[in-house]
Amino acid sequence: MIDRYLVRPDREGFTVSDIWTGEPAVIAMVPQTGLSREDAEHTADLLNRRAHAGDTRLLQ
């Protein structure tokens, strides 16, 4: 299965990007931008595991 979320560099660090929309992922109304690489990779991994399981509760 293809991952929906990937990590991309941004001006302040890294963004977790939703490949379906082209927009940053949003959790609890907070865009996932300007993160450290470690935090962005962890967040993308969590969102991808939830997306593969069909769970979208974290997303707006």
Rank of each mutant, 00 (worst) to 15 (best):
Ser36Trp: 01
Asp55Val: 07
Asp3Trp: 14
Leu47Gln: 08
Thr43Ser: 09
Thr15Leu: 00
Pro31His: 05
Gly22His: 08
Arg50Lys: 07
Asp39Phe: 12
Asp55Arg: 10
Glu23Phe: 10
Thr33Val: 15
Gly13Val: 06
Ile2Lys: 13
Glu41Asp: 12
Gln60Ile: 11
Arg57Gly: 13
Leu59Ile: 05
Leu6Phe: 07
Arg4Glu: 06
Asp45Arg: 08
Ala51Gln: 12
Ala25Lys: 00
Thr15Trp: 05
Asp3Ala: 11
Leu35Met: 11
Glu23Asp: 11
Glu38Met: 06
Gly22Tyr: 01
Thr33Phe: 02
Asp10Met: 07
Gln60Trp: 05
Thr33Trp: 00
Thr33Ala: 00
Phe14Tyr: 06
Arg57His: 05
Thr33Lys: 14
Tyr5Thr: 12
Ser17Met: 15
Thr21Tyr: 04
Asn48Cys: 01
Glu12Lys: 09
Ala51Met: 10
Val30Leu: 07
Thr21Ile: 06
Arg37Glu: 05
Asp45Trp: 08
Gln32Asp: 02
Asn48Met: 08
Asp45Ser: 13
Leu46Asn: 11
Ile2Glu: 15
Met29Cys: 13
Glu12Leu: 13
Trp20Gly: 04
Val30Arg: 13
Val7His: 03
Asp3Ser: 06
Asp18Met: 09
Pro31Leu: 02
Asn48Ser: 03
Ala51Pro: 09
Ala28Arg: 14
Arg50Ile: 06
Arg4Lys: 12
Met29Glu: 14
Leu59Glu: 01
Thr33Pro: 00
Asp18Leu: 03
Asp10Phe: 13
Val16Trp: 07
Thr56Gln: 06
Val16Phe: 01
Val30Asp: 08
Arg57Leu: 15
Leu47Gly: 08
Phe14Cys: 06
His42Asn: 02
Ala53Thr: 09
Ala44Asp: 11
Thr56Met: 12
Trp20Lys: 13
Ala25Asp: 00
Leu6Val: 02
Glu41Pro: 08
Asp3Cys: 02
Leu58Glu: 05
His42Gln: 11
Val7Leu: 04
Leu6Met: 08
Arg57Pro: 11
Ile27Gln: 10
Asp39Glu: 14
Arg49Pro: 00
Gly13Phe: 03
Leu47His: 05
Leu59Val: 09
Glu38Gln: 12
Glu41Ile: 15
Arg50Ala: 12
His42Phe: 11
Ala40Arg: 04
Ala51Cys: 05
Leu46Val: 15
Thr43Met: 10
Glu23Gln: 15
Leu35Cys: 00
Ser17Cys: 12
Ala51Val: 03
Pro9Tyr: 14
Arg49Cys: 07
Gly34Leu: 04
Ile19Lys: 10
Asp55Tyr: 13
Asp55Pro: 05
Leu58Trp: 07
Ala40Lys: 06
Met1Ser: 14
Arg57Tyr: 14
